[in-house]
């Protein structure tokens, strides 16, 4: 199992942060990819809300395709945390919630120099995020894959 990439969007759909750990298939255009990701999540959110047997409900947690899983967490203020991993890594939306509570709030919200809506430059945020992701059980194989390829 592998962790591919992490996205953080604000409520307007601007990508505040993009990190990748491995990406076997290179993307052609990063901004286009971010726009598409946000678009899919935006459409899926309404889709799930409509289909939900109980209202309110139908909050998207993750989806999986034949090659990857996308895990999703949305904060009450509309920040969207997205993590791409390989299939079968379980439900990681709780992990994204922890990243929001312990990493984002600590290093971005409490940073007096941060202007809301700007892309995140804080090195502390990046390093804490890196530690949180590398601690995941499904990250282990990233290193193995590298040594093979």
């Amino acid at each position: 199992m592998t962790v591919y990439a992490f996205y953080l969007f604000d409520r307007q759909g601007n990508c505040l942060c993009y990190r990748e750990w491995s990406r076997p298939k290179l993307m052609k255009d990063a901004t286009q990819d971010q726009k598409n990701t946000f678009g899919v999540l935006f459409a899926l959110k309404n889709f799930c809300k409509k289909l939900s047997p109980r209202q309110p409900g139908g909050q998207l947690k993750n989806y999986s395709t034949d090659v990857y899983s996308l895990h999703y967490f949305e904060s009450p203020t509309g920040l969207r945390f997205v993590l791409l991993t390989s299939r079968g890594s379980g439900d990681l939306s709780g992990v994204l919630r922890d990243i929001y509570l312990n990493v984002y709030v600590d290093t971005v919200t409490r940073n007096p120099l941060y202007v809301p809506g700007e892309s995140i430059q804080s090195q502390l945020f990046f390093s804490k995020l890196d530690t949180a992701i590398k601690a995941l059980a499904c990250f282990q194989d990233n290193e193995e894959n590298k040594s093979i390829s």
């Binding site: 939900s52 047997p53 909050q59 989806y63």
Partner: peptide, 13 residues
Amino acid sequence: FGFGIERIETDTF
């Protein structure tokens, strides 16, 4: 195969 989404999980379904 490239089938796209196979499974979606939400809190209610």
